[in-house]
């Protein structure tokens, strides 16, 4: 089961660097420092980690965190089977054993008592205690921990403890600047550059309203969605409303303003 091969990223993921992040990540990896990737939703955090795993040729194990997740979901548990019980490694344990990059996506979603199980893995000890099994795992030399985190969440309850934050090096991501974002949209959807640039501009109008009724602007991901719909023959205005405007707001005035931005952006 703990087969390293199956976690390798085989094809090169498409990733456009925004700055020096690739070299910096490599440096962090070589020192096996834990990494935290911060940024608004849909700005390319997951894509970046996937790309780095590919580039470094290391297996990648991704865990999408959620509120109901317990420490056992990360570490592992005993299962009943016909002949008694059997231990099953959780994804974090697997990663530590085989020397994978373990990517905990949206770590703030997890309960705080869950987050602390990663602590011993992130300091010089690099160990993972399996309390129930009475085993102490020494992390494989290739193992690295990466977490992602969206600081834009307005809830003050969903924040990492200082003691967790201060175990990581961090990258601050934001939406790429217009030309780069356009290129990403073109590449991801196959849409022509002109229309893609228009979509990016519309997304930027929404980003201007952040803090004035919008908590988050329109993400790169949503732009790619709209572009994909257009590519499949949906009228551009309809695609924008459906994939970019409707998902982000229920405020009638803001919706009307963004709808107008959509109309104004297409000749």
């Amino acid at each position: 089961m703990s087969n390293k091969e199956q976690f390798l990223v085989r094809a090169e993921p498409y990733y456009e660097a925004q700055g020096k992040e690739v070299a910096l990540y490599e440096a962090a990896y070589h020192a096996r420092l834990p990494v935290m990737v911060k940024g608004p939703t849909g700005c390319g955090k997951s894509r970046f980690v996937e790309y780095m795993a590919w580039k470094l040729g290391k297996p990648l194990i991704t865990v999408a965190c959620n509120e109901d997740m317990t420490a056992s979901d990360l570490v592992g548990r005993y299962l009943l089977d016909a002949s008694g019980t059997r231990w099953l490694d959780g994804p974090l344990t697997t990663a530590a054993r085989i020397g994978a990059i373990c990517y905990l996506d949206e770590i703030v979603e997890a309960r705080q008592d869950t987050t602390v199980v990663i602590h011993p893995l992130t300091d010089h000890r690099r160990v993972l205690p399996l309390d129930k099994k009475g085993e102490l795992i020494e992390a494989h030399a290739d193992f690295q921990l990466v977490i992602s985190y969206n600081p834009g969440y307005q809830s003050l309850m969903k924040d990492l403890k200082q003691s967790t934050k201060q175990r990581f090096t961090a990258f601050d991501f934001d939406y790429p600047e217009a030309a780069l974002e356009t290129q990403i949209v073109v590449q991801e959807s196959g849409l022509d550059a002109g229309t893609a640039a228009t979509l990016v501009r519309i997304a930027q109008t929404a980003r201007n309203l952040k803090g004035h009724g919008l908590d988050e602007g329109i993400s790169t991901r949503l732009i790619v969605y709209a572009a994909t719909l257009i590519k499949r023959g949906v009228a551009p205005q309809d695609a924008c409303r459906m994939a970019m405007v409707r998902p982000i707001t229920d405020d009638a005035d803001i919706r009307a303003t963004l709808d107008h931005a959509v109309d104004a952006s297409f000749a």
Partner: peptide, 13 residues
């Protein structure tokens, strides 16, 4: 008025 404020801000900063 609010829509116009939003309009100025969103489309024209």
């Amino acid at each position: 008025e609010r829509q116009l404020d939003l309009y100025l801000r969103a489309l024209w900063r």
